[in-house]
Design a binder for these strands. Structure first.
Lengths: 337, 337
DNA sequence: CATAAAAATGATGACGCTTTCATTTATAAT
DNA sequence: ATTATAAATGAAAGCGTCATCATTTTTATG
């Protein structure tokens, strides 16, 4: 309860507040003897530094704001935790907001974070009302990095993956296995750019290989296990059911697997299933899931160091990093030959 | 970049800074016409409120600090996200620190969070150097709630589960299925109270039922899938191998399952496996996992509302809530009869 | 030992907002 | 119209720290 301030410490140590501040922030500016005296008082009186006041005074902040679009599916967990870890190492604190894939909320969360004047901002993808969001970002002048996505705007810094290419690759792999009817299960792609790119990759790949388009093969659901099951059920009850299903997230793929099993279908004997993300369980699933590996940890780490760099070395030109994704072939897809 | 302050807004609106502040924080105190005028300027000039300055001035904060012990295993994800969500609803912002199960780090993270003078503190369990930690907490006078654990100290507020009882229940269930040799796989129980309680529940239950003690049946590893596999391999290569294995976290249980399968053992025909947590995948695993259901979301939500209550209605007596856990019987354990 | 230069410390005014208290303006009552 | 009362606004002093500039003390140099 005893909220001692720097001033009282100064009084007790027989120095000025300025000296106490220096003893704390730039020890080399203060004589050893006095510094020791000050630190002793600080310890004795259990003085607690007031970082907020300091931030206000020196017009900077040791906090960075992070916005994630969702807490379900939790694909971003690894990224979030990687950021947390690295930020902590660098003496930064992280404040998290959840936009729930909702433009309104996204704006309001961004607002709230901005009001705390963070040193930098990390956004996971970005949403439909791009212009507005970007204006807010630009106006604030706060260094910002977009993650998990390669935004169209060339002015933005980002650390992302090529969702389009990855989805294209997976689709092409399935086609290579001679599948002709390939189902697609995805999250809210009409709202989320990142997912929409995956959709486009799938669509273009089919068309490039001369396969016919069928709306019924694409099912949009929430990115949860349960919804993955539902989506799969829908696909499997089609008159002309697909021989392979590409789920644009591993979690949904597991749902699809569960649904298939429930229907008595063997994977991959009766139907092939592919995922996207390569979460921990994928390698241990039954059967092990063929998927696209996305290194969420790396995204987080890169994004953070990128951001720190921008904070410390301001420069107008954006940092842009596109991480590679890998097709990980396991045993959930079989060749039709 | 244009960091307009309240003062400039005031000038432009032809009022005093105080009025601008009121127009923002207590609109009812200001005439409609002037409020509109002020808000118009604010919008025009893209003024951004400076929450830090406000917090400093009014000696409070709309930020709460959250410490989690680990990012691996990610059992706490649901709790963290639940907190995030609810906090956001109530206009609070959340800053997260990771103690990595390390007392030194825990102290330093707590320090850092404290220096930002949060409105309240949420700790996930608490660590070995309890006294020191508690002293820091008490001294700061910041409302604090411990989560996931029922601390020994009766002065502490907490929202937890009875880890001891839950583990006891599961062990008893296995014994009820006539298992005599029951392996135990757990995380770092020597370091983490929460896990240690589970260990004690297991141990006491065995002893209460007159079963002999065997050190070799207890394997301590990191709470990861890979380590779960390793632990299982160790148990399965025992001369006198257990007929059932209780993994004190679902993630490790999945590792155990994977290891069993790799060895050609069928679950539960050849060996029974039980988990703890009931994470999303557990119900969909093959076979569906028998486990202890812990409602991580509820823990988070309760802890937060408990904390908010403490923030708004300070009172010396601690709030203590012990949530119930359920034994969820699925198909990963069989009776030996 | 005197003097110049360097190092350490102090005084003071921000930083952007809130809040109390005083003052002015609007409303109600006579 | 004149008070009395209430509502709206303004002036100014913090909140706890940092940074600039001025001042004092120490060290180095001749």
């Amino acid at each position: 309860m005893g909220q001692i301030t720097i001033e009282e410490v100064a009084k007790l140590a027989g120095v000025s507040p300025a000296t106490v501040s220096r003893a704390l922030r730039s020890p080399e500016m203060v004589r050893d003897s006095t510094r020791k005296r000050v630190l002793k008082i600080i310890k004795e009186k259990k003085y607690v530094y007031h970082a907020l006041a300091a931030d206000l005074s020196r017009q900077r902040s040791a906090n960075i704001g992070l916005i994630i679009p969702s807490t379900i599916g939790s694909i971003f967990v690894r990224t979030v935790f990687a950021i947390l870890e690295k930020a902590q190492e660098h003496g930064y604190t992280v404040t998290i907001g959840n936009s729930k894939y909702n433009p309104e909320i996204e704006m309001s969360v961004l607002r709230t974070l901005n009001e705390r004047h963070p040193a930098g901002l990390l956004l996971t993808g970005y949403c439909v009302r791009k212009e507005e969001l970007l204006e807010e970002i630009n106006r604030s002048g706060i260094p910002t990095v977009i993650m998990w996505e390669k935004p169209d705007d060339p002015q933005l810094s980002y650390v992302g993956i090529d969702n389009y290419r990855a989805a294209y690759t997976m689709t092409e792999y399935l086609i290579g296995l001679k599948h002709q009817r390939i189902g697609l299960i995805l999250g809210p792609y009409s709202k989320v750019d990142r997912v929409h790119k995956r959709f486009e990759g799938y669509r273009d790949c089919l068309s490039d290989h001369g396969l016919p388009w069928d709306d019924l093969l694409v099912v949009e659901k929430e990115p949860t296990l349960a919804d993955g099951m539902e989506a799969m059920n829908r696909l499997m009850s089609l008159a002309n059911r697909p021989t392979a299903v590409f789920a644009a997230s591993d979690v949904m793929a597991f749902g699809a697997m569960a649904a298939a099993k429930e229907k008595g279908l063997k994977v991959p004997a009766d139907v092939s299933i592919a995922g996207f993300d390569d979460i921990d369980f994928s390698a241990y699933a039954d059967p092990p899931l063929t998927t696209i590996r996305v290194n969420g940890i790396e995204i987080g780490e890169m994004a953070l160091s990128c951001l720190l760099d921008m904070i410390e070395n301001p420069s107008p030109q954006p940092r842009q990093i596109c991480l590679k994704t890998d097709l990980v072939v396991r045993n959930s897809c079989r060749s039709l030959e």
